[in-house]
Amino acid sequence: MSRRILCIEDDGAIAELVEEVLVEAGFHVVRADSGPSGLTRLGEAYDAILCDIDLPGQSGLDLLRTLRARGSQTPFVLVTAHSGRENQIEARRLGCDDFIVKPIDFELLLAVLNNVLQKNAPAAGTPAPPVLTEREREVLAWVSRGKSSADIAKILGISERTVNFHVDRVMRKLDVATRMQAAIACLRLGLIPG
């Protein structure tokens, strides 16, 4: 089965060339032509995402920020005419896997894409990271900031018992003994923002 790549690019000619090269290399390509259309596609499963930084409606950095906030570790490669240091630093902080600078060198694009896919492929026998609900991520984010269950309950407007229920579920999913171990594991796995 071919790997699915989401290509978010507003320049139709570039998107068409990227798709042609990737399909020829054996990938299945799904295209989006703006930030908002890319955002609607982020909920689907992809093996990697290629995304322009400058997009109408929402930038590639915004899309990367949204993807990582959802806990997704899908490889993300920015395709950009702006190789500026500030963009690269911000993108790396957000969890970008690599960059391709326009005009696109398609041989380099395939090498980068294959590299990020190989690096992000789970090793044989390595379990996939657990899936957390939105509420579990929210609670663990507060745990990682040192908040007590009572504090978290007040902040989120839920009962302390509900907070403890979510913490216990995450501890079981991660097979850890303490709430702080769960928070640290979630941070390391990118399941909650740092």
Rank of each mutant, 00 (worst) to 15 (best):
E134Y: 13
E136R: 08
P122C: 09
E138W: 00
E134F: 15
L140I: 03
R135W: 00
L132Y: 04
A141K: 10
A124H: 10
P130N: 12
A141S: 14
L117S: 09
P122L: 12
G146C: 11
V143D: 07
G125W: 06
E136F: 10
K147R: 09
N115R: 15
V131P: 05
K147A: 08
R145K: 15
V139F: 11
G146W: 04
V139K: 08
P122M: 06
E136A: 12
A121M: 01
R137G: 14
G125F: 03
T133W: 00
V143T: 06
V116N: 07
V139I: 13
T126E: 13
V139D: 09
A141C: 10
G125L: 06
K147N: 12
T133I: 05
A123V: 13
N115L: 15
N115H: 15
A128C: 04
N114M: 05
K119Y: 14
P122I: 14
G146M: 03
N115M: 14
N114K: 08
E136G: 10
R137E: 07
S148Q: 11
N120G: 09
R135N: 00
R135E: 02
N114P: 04
V139G: 09
L140G: 01
V143E: 02
K147V: 06
G146R: 05
A128P: 09
R135Q: 02
S149Y: 03
S144I: 01
S149H: 02
T133Y: 01
A141R: 15
P127D: 05
A124Y: 06
V131W: 00
